[in-house]
Simulated assay, not measured.
Amino acid sequence: MSGKAARIELTSCMHQILSQLAASRNASRAIIVRARIILLAFNKLDNQTIADTVKRCPKTVGLWRRRWRDSSQALLQMQFNLNQSAFQRAIIDTLSDAPRSGSPGRFTNEQISGLISLACEKPQNSGRPVTSWTGAELADEAQRRQLVDSISTSHVNRILREVSLKPHRSRYWCNTTEKDPELFQRQVETVCRTYYEAPQLYDRQRTHTVCIDEMTRGGPKTV
């Protein structure tokens, strides 16, 4: 009996680079095939179907699915810390024959989460004389709060762009009208915990977590 296939997760940037590699005329044949394997796996094709498509054996498909899965956290962190060219190189390294552990990157997941959380706050709460955040204001405030030792405006903008966060255009659910701060804190914790546990629920119980409210006031629902 075959084991469970490794689940593949891609950001839009990863998908774009893999698509470019899969269609490349300059990349090696091995890199092209492996990029196609990851893209097909992301589309939830099984190993045998992928193997038939790329003319490789299912064992090879499974190996590269696991290699990508095991490298995905390091790649996600590098995406926020590297420019496009360097990140493409990191992906090519991941698809190369020698295993790569990946660079830990400049910023931890906690620091990146803290920056995103800051972008969801009102600038006025930090005494900022602006009605919406800019990359420069966020970089300065993140350093003032000691979330990071230093960070450039362009790096802040790259992080926000990747998670599709546009504080200058939208109001977010974190900017609550709830008057009870303890109640709001419990609501925030419930929503964040639900999103955090969603992948584990899917892996263990095949439970899908679905957000049925654009503003997530009541939190996501599991089905």
Rank of each mutant, 00 (worst) to 15 (best):
Q187F: 00
N26T: 14
S71E: 02
P199F: 06
S24F: 04
Q187A: 02
A142E: 04
A142D: 08
S126Y: 13
A90L: 07
T49K: 07
L76T: 11
Q143C: 15
Q143E: 13
S28C: 07
M215Q: 10
K166Y: 14
P199T: 08
R186S: 11
R106D: 00
L95W: 00
L160M: 03
L45P: 00
A86P: 03
V210M: 09
C120R: 15
L165P: 06
Q205E: 09
K122C: 13
D97M: 04
L115C: 06
D180A: 08
H155M: 02
V223A: 07
L118F: 04
V210H: 10
Q48D: 10
A90E: 06
L115T: 03
G218L: 15
D149P: 05
I38Y: 01
W68Q: 01
C192S: 14
R204T: 13
T222F: 00
M78R: 09
A86N: 11
E214C: 15
G218K: 14
V188R: 14
G219S: 06
A136M: 09
R25E: 11
W133V: 06
G3W: 15
T60E: 04
Q146D: 10
I31H: 04
R169W: 02
I212Y: 05
G219N: 04
P220R: 07
R158T: 07
N175K: 09
N47P: 00
E110C: 11
G219W: 06
Q124D: 15
A23G: 02
K179Y: 11
L160D: 02
N47H: 03
L201Y: 10
P99F: 03
P220A: 06
A23Y: 06
N157E: 12
D149V: 12
E197K: 10
I112G: 01
K4T: 15
Y202R: 05
